[in-house]
Simulated scan of single mutants.
Amino acid sequence: MEKQTTIASSCLFLLYITTFTVAEVLEAHHHLHQHNIHGSVKLFVFGDSYVDTGNIRKSVSPSWKEPYGITFPGKPAGRGSGGRGPPRFLASFLGIRSPVPYALRKFVKKSKLESGMNFAFGGTGVFDTLVSGPNLTTQIDFFEQLLQQKVYAKNDVVKSSIALVSVAGNDYAAHFGRPGNDTK
């Protein structure tokens, strides 16, 4: 019974977060349209494999091998979700390009950075997980470094940006996967 209550509570919490997130995005989208700055909106993505669009090296991640990417873009491309994921859908809704993965920032034209950036790394979480990758704090540090380097202007980011944050279950898996933690 306790397990069912925990599962029901978790589902209700996720439903609440999803509803809150959708409402915030719609409000931000409306606000951007009102101020005619739609073209300069930026999307910054933080989190795990649900939103990672290619930050993990090819030699490390299975997301660079089939069957990942067969539905989109037609070949493996490092997307943790295996195809069109939340960042792409949200960027499309906002009328911008999907944000460039942080790992590719030095290999693309500066104009491709105008839509924002994706800092998400598959397998990571809020805390350190079973995957050795940059956790949420480190991803935010990467973002702050770009602001200090003036890749993005602070005023522009504050006025016309949306952040997508996804932290699914990697923290739980890490907690329960460590010796001494009861999984019952």
Rank of each mutant, 00 (worst) to 15 (best):
residue 54 G to N: 00
residue 145 Q to W: 12
residue 101 P to K: 00
residue 178 R to I: 09
residue 106 K to W: 01
residue 56 I to K: 01
residue 63 S to H: 04
residue 5 T to R: 15
residue 71 T to R: 12
residue 183 T to P: 10
residue 142 F to C: 10
residue 155 N to S: 14
residue 178 R to D: 13
residue 160 S to L: 03
residue 145 Q to I: 13
residue 38 H to W: 04
residue 177 G to Y: 10
residue 41 V to F: 03
residue 91 A to M: 06
residue 107 F to H: 09
residue 73 P to T: 05
residue 131 V to L: 05
residue 117 M to P: 03
residue 96 I to S: 04
residue 176 F to W: 08
residue 31 H to D: 11
residue 82 G to Q: 04
residue 132 S to T: 12
residue 159 K to T: 08
residue 16 Y to F: 14
residue 7 I to S: 13
residue 98 S to M: 07
residue 35 H to K: 13
residue 12 L to A: 14
residue 29 H to C: 09
residue 133 G to D: 02
residue 57 R to T: 07
residue 113 L to M: 07
residue 45 V to A: 00
residue 53 T to A: 00
residue 109 K to M: 07
residue 167 V to T: 11
residue 82 G to V: 02
residue 125 G to L: 03
residue 72 F to Q: 05
residue 133 G to C: 04
residue 35 H to A: 12
residue 166 S to Q: 07
residue 17 I to L: 13
residue 96 I to T: 08
residue 4 Q to N: 15
residue 124 T to G: 05
residue 110 K to A: 12
residue 7 I to W: 09
residue 139 Q to V: 03
residue 139 Q to W: 02
residue 81 S to I: 04
residue 5 T to F: 12
residue 30 H to T: 10
residue 155 N to G: 11
residue 27 E to D: 13
residue 183 T to C: 11
residue 112 K to I: 02
residue 145 Q to M: 15
residue 67 P to M: 06
residue 165 V to A: 05
residue 50 Y to I: 11
residue 86 P to D: 08
residue 118 N to T: 00
residue 162 I to A: 06
residue 108 V to C: 03
residue 65 K to R: 14
residue 20 F to L: 13
residue 137 T to P: 01
residue 87 P to Q: 01
residue 153 A to I: 08
residue 5 T to S: 15
residue 112 K to W: 10
residue 48 D to I: 01
residue 84 R to I: 10
residue 53 T to W: 00
residue 36 N to K: 15
residue 95 G to D: 07
residue 12 L to F: 10
residue 183 T to V: 11
residue 167 V to C: 15
residue 68 Y to S: 08
residue 6 T to S: 12
residue 44 F to Y: 04
residue 88 R to P: 01
residue 79 R to W: 02
residue 141 D to S: 14
residue 70 I to F: 09
residue 156 D to C: 07
residue 142 F to L: 09
residue 166 S to P: 06
residue 105 R to K: 13
residue 32 L to K: 03
